[in-house]
Design a protein around this nucleic acid. Structure first.
Length: 281
DNA sequence: AAGCACACCTGCTAGC
DNA sequence: TGCTAGCAGGTGTGCT
C-alpha cells in the first residue's frame, strides 16, 4: 500500500518520536518479517540480538524504503531498514495498548514506548545493515530528488521504450512511485498510461516531471493516502487525508474532474490502471 | 529491452 | 445467510 508520501509521513513521525531513543528490548515473533535472518527459529533471536541496544540517531528514506540510523554501545554504526510492502504498519504504542493480530515485531524503547511492526500479509520486512549506508543500490533516484531536476527526469522518460506507467513504477528508474500516484500523475499530465516513453513529446514528458513533484509534495502535506480499508496509517495509527486529492485512482465510472466523462479502468501489467480516455492522450 | 505470469500472504467484498 | 472468486497500496524471479 504505502508509496513515497506514506513512507515519508512515517519517516517524519519516526524522526520526532523515535530518534534519540535506545532499544532496551527487541522481540520479533513473525519469522517472515525478519526473513533475511533465515527461516528457522534462530532467525528471531538473531534479529533481536542485532537490534537490542541500538540508539537511533536519525532517519532516512529511499523510495519506499525506510532507514533508521543508529549506533550500538561500542560505537558501531548500524541501520535498521524497513519496507512496509502492501500491508505493513509501524505503530508507536504504549506497552499497555492491546496487541492487534499480525503484530510481528516489538521494540521497547527507553522512554517506555514500543515501536510495533504490524503486517497482515507478511510481505513487509525489516533487517539491519552493519554499514551506515544500507544496500539499496538497485534503486534509481528518489522520486522527489529526480522531480527537483526536471530536465534530467524529462530526458530519462524520453529515452525509454517502456510504457510510461511502467516506467514511473519501475523502482530502478525512479524510486517511490506506485500504482496510486502513477495514475494521479499521468492524469494531471494528460498522458495515457500506455504511451511509450520514446513517443512522448518534450512538453508532455516535462509535464510529467513537474507534476510528479507537485503530486507527491501535496500528498505528503496531507500525510499520505488512506483508502477505505485504512490499511495505511501513520505512527500514531491515524489515517492520512491525501485520498481526497485523488482524481482517478479507484474512481472507475465516476466523472473525470476535467471533462465529466467516466473514468475508465484497464488491466495493465496485472494491475488496475485508472484514467480518462478523453483528457489523457 | 520489455512484457508477461506467477509467487509470496491475509482480508475484504461483490456476486451468486 | 453463506459461500467463493476476485481483488488489494509491492517486489522478485523466471520465462518468452
Amino acid at each position: 500500500m504505502p508509496e513515497l508520501p506514506e513512507v515519508e509521513t512515517v519517516r517524519r513521525d519516526l524522526e520526532r518520536l523515535v530518534v534519540g531513543r535506545t532499544v532496551v528490548q527487541a522481540r520479533a515473533t513473525g519469522r517472515r518479517s525478519v526473513r533475511r535472518y533465515g527461516d528457522g527459529p534462530a532467525a528471531l533471536a538473531a534479529f533481536d540480538a542485532d537490534v537490542e541496544g541500538t540508539r537511533f540517531t536519525g532517519t532516512g528514506r529511499l523510495g519506499k524504503y525506510l532507514v533508521l540510523h543508529g549506533t550500538r554501545a561500542e560505537d558501531v554504526l548500524s541501520a535498521l531498514i524497513i519496507h512496509l510492502r502492501m500491508s505493513g504498519q509501524l505503530i508507536h504504542a504504549r506497552p499497555s495498548d492491546p496487541l492487534v493480530v499480525h503484530t510481528h515485531v516489538r521494540l521497547t524503547l527507553d522512554d517506555g514506548h514500543e515501536l510495533r511492526f504490524v503486517d497482515p500479509r507478511t510481505f513487509g520486512e525489516m533487517w539491519t545493515n552493519p554499514a551506515a549506508l544500507p544496500d539499496l543500490g538497485h534503486l534509481g533516484p528518489d522520486a522527489l530528488e529526480l522531480a527537483a531536476e526536471p530536465r534530467r527526469f524529462t530526458e530519462l522518460l524520453r529515452s525509454r521504450r517502456t510504457m510510461v506507467k511502467a516506467l514511473l513504477m519501475d523502482q530502478g528508474v525512479v524510486a517511490g512511485i506506485g500504482n496510486i500516484y502513477s495514475d494521479e500523475i499521468l492524469h494531471r499530465a494528460r498522458v495515457r498510461p500506455d504511451r511509450r516513453g520514446v513517443d512522448l513529446s518534450r512538453p508532455a514528458a516535462r509535464r510529467i516531471a513537474d507534476i510528479t513533484g507537485e503530486v507527491l509534495h501535496a500528498a505528503v502535506d496531507l500525510r499520505g493516502s488512506s483508502l477505505s480499508d485504512a490499511q495505511y496509517v501513520d505512527l500514531a495509527g491515524l489515517p492520512g487525508r491525501a485520498a481526497q486529492l485523488h482524481l482517478v485512482y479507484d474512481r472507475e465510472h465516476l466523472p473525470c474532474a476535467s471533462c465529466g466523462r467516466p473514468v475508465v479502468r484497464i488491466r495493465f501489467g496485472g494491475r488496475s490502471s485508472y484514467f480518462c480516455r478523453h483528457c489523457q492522450r
